[in-house]
Simulated assay, not measured.
Amino acid sequence: MRRFLILLPMVPAFAQPVIEPKFADRIFPYVSYSEVWTGTPAMLKDVAVPNVLIVYGVNEDTDVVAQAGKIAFYLGQWVEDIGFGAEEVKQSKIPPLLVSDKQLKNVQWKNIIVVGTNNDIVKELGLSFEKPTIKLVEKDEKKMLIVGGQNKEQVLQAIKYLADVRLNFKAGAYRTFFSFVALRGHIEKGEFDTALRLVRSPMGLSACGKNMALAGPMIAQWPDELKAVVKKRNAILYVELPKALEERNKDKAVELWKEAMFTCYQCHQGIGIPQVRKFKPVEEIHAKHQRIAEAFGLVKVVGNEKSCVACHAGQTQIKGYK
Rank of each mutant, 00 (worst) to 15 (best):
S179T: 03
N211E: 03
N249E: 09
A173N: 08
F23M: 11
A182Q: 15
C264T: 00
P9I: 10
K280R: 15
K189W: 08
A260P: 00
E20V: 14
L167H: 00
I219P: 00
H186W: 11
G270D: 02
E225G: 08
D61V: 03
V147R: 11
D101T: 12
A215W: 02
K152G: 06
K142S: 10
R277Q: 12
I273E: 11
F73L: 14
P50V: 08
K227H: 11
P132K: 07
K231W: 11
V155I: 15
G83A: 10
K300L: 14
F177P: 09
F169Q: 12
K322L: 08
L196W: 01
E255N: 03
A66Y: 07
E124T: 12
E259Y: 05
Y161P: 00
T316A: 11
V11A: 15
V114C: 09
P41Q: 08
A66I: 08
K143M: 12
V254Q: 06
M261R: 10
E138V: 15
M212Q: 08
Q91N: 14
S201R: 02
G185Y: 11
K232L: 13
V49A: 07
D140H: 06
H289A: 02
V301R: 15
A293T: 00
V18C: 07
K250R: 14
K131E: 12
F28D: 05
L245C: 06
A213Y: 12
L7M: 12
W257S: 00
